[in-house]
Amino acid sequence: PPEREDLRRLAPEDSCETLTMLTLRQEESICSNVLTELPAGLTLRVLEVPATDRQPRRRAKVQAGMWLGWITVQTSAYEPLVRRKLAEESFEITERMLGCSFRLLQVTQVRRGERFDSELVKELAPDAVVRLCELSADLPHRGRVIHALAEGWMSLATPHGQLRVKGPLLSSEVSAAGPAKVEGAAAGAEAAAAEAAAAEAAAAE
């Protein structure tokens, strides 16, 4: 069978999604040290794809959250193990989303400081809505948030890069969450700015 076109065009800075559990290794060789196992459905950033003219592209260096390593992208029988994602499918929390609200997808710890070992402020339940105020310059996926019951730093994604939050939310979605799940009221100007940023982010996806 022919090599899949989307994998043949796989290139650095592309995003791809794992179709099955994959082993992340330290080097290109399949005999190198195992770093971790990547679950199916995980979005990866492609860093390097060895150039080849005659052989199908089988190995790629990727980033999965805080992990960097090599995976197999298709078997010797051309069976795909990942799929190349379209640009409109890729999503990343950036500074232009500061001031926007997000809904938690799982139980999440809010800590006093940016570091993971700082004082625990509170654990927020799934569906809680928080407002993103700041992104860490040093720790990937760490952000400072505000909620009615807590203010501090939380992880916006798992170490593998899987998002713990959904958003940005529009003001109507924030209102529908109810007062028990929403952060303290923001000033009118802040709310308008957050909604505009959310609309811009949604249009850019």
Rank of each mutant, 00 (worst) to 15 (best):
P80S: 11
G65N: 02
R103L: 12
R111W: 11
C100T: 15
M97Q: 08
T23Y: 01
L81P: 01
S136F: 11
G113T: 14
R45V: 07
R84L: 09
L68T: 14
R144D: 06
C31N: 12
T23N: 01
L139R: 10
V107S: 10
A60P: 01
D127A: 13
L86I: 04
V145L: 07
L139F: 09
T36F: 04
M21W: 06
M21S: 12
E114K: 10
R57I: 10
L120M: 13
E37L: 11
S29T: 14
G41H: 11
I146Y: 06
P50D: 05
E28H: 00
L22V: 05
G69I: 05
T43H: 06
D117K: 11
L47E: 08
V121I: 15
T43P: 00
Y78Q: 13
I71E: 00
F102L: 09
F91M: 08
I146S: 12
E28D: 03
R58W: 02
Y78L: 13
L24S: 03
R142H: 10
V129D: 02
A40S: 14
D138S: 15
R83W: 07
M97H: 04
T52K: 07
I71S: 01
E89N: 05
I71V: 15
L98E: 02
L35N: 00
V34R: 05
A125R: 15
I30R: 02
L120F: 09
